[in-house]
Computed example of a mutant assay.
Amino acid sequence: MTQDIQRYHSNARMSKIVQYGGLVFLCGQTASGSAPTPIEDQTREVLRRIDTLLAEAGSDRSRLLSATIYLKHMEDFAAMNATWEAWMPSGAAPARTTVQANLASPDLLIEITVVAASA
């Protein structure tokens, strides 16, 4: 039996949400705007975007399976973690990887991509 792949907010390059086989895949989420803002503010904005997209896909943060976090500066790791931990429901931590990376814009400090189970 073949399952349908559903794609939302797609263009020639990417889809913001892809659903397949009970899983929800989100593209990498970053903060908006061109003005530099602190890592805590950017992390909160990214997590709000993730919440919005997961809700649209019929899931939520308590159903996260994995997360990959890209940081421009590893010096921001502790501050990002504090913001992440305040957002993450107790007992729902996903498998997670954090790496340092050059991001698409000089003002971006963080990008997060997640996979979640459908509700």
Results as ranks from 00 to 15, higher is better:
108 L>G: 03
62 S>M: 05
80 M>D: 00
40 E>L: 07
83 T>M: 09
97 T>P: 04
100 Q>P: 01
43 T>Q: 03
63 R>G: 06
14 M>S: 15
115 V>M: 14
71 L>Q: 01
47 L>Q: 04
110 I>Y: 05
88 M>H: 04
39 I>D: 01
52 T>F: 14
104 A>W: 13
34 S>N: 15
10 S>H: 10
111 E>T: 00
9 H>I: 03
69 I>K: 00
26 L>H: 00
114 V>I: 11
72 K>G: 06
26 L>C: 06
30 T>V: 14
26 L>A: 03
43 T>E: 01
75 E>M: 08
59 S>H: 03
108 L>Q: 13
116 A>M: 10
38 P>L: 04
114 V>A: 05
14 M>T: 13
9 H>W: 14
67 A>K: 00
16 K>I: 07
20 Y>T: 00
58 G>H: 07
116 A>H: 10
35 A>E: 14
92 A>N: 10
111 E>S: 10
42 Q>F: 08
98 T>V: 14
47 L>P: 11
50 I>E: 03
87 W>D: 06
44 R>T: 12
74 M>I: 05
55 A>F: 04
72 K>V: 02
3 Q>V: 11
72 K>C: 09
12 A>S: 13
14 M>V: 14
25 F>C: 01
94 P>Y: 02
33 G>W: 08
99 V>F: 09
10 S>Q: 12
22 G>P: 07
84 W>N: 03
35 A>V: 13
60 D>T: 02
19 Q>M: 15
10 S>A: 13
78 A>D: 11
10 S>W: 09
48 R>N: 13
33 G>C: 01
30 T>N: 07
104 A>K: 11
96 R>A: 10
6 Q>K: 12
82 A>R: 15
106 P>Y: 05
11 N>W: 04
82 A>L: 12
59 S>F: 05
22 G>H: 06
62 S>R: 11
60 D>I: 02
102 N>C: 08
84 W>M: 03
69 I>L: 11
59 S>Y: 04
81 N>Y: 11
72 K>F: 08
2 T>N: 14
100 Q>H: 00
35 A>W: 09
79 A>T: 09
32 S>T: 14
24 V>P: 00
8 Y>P: 00
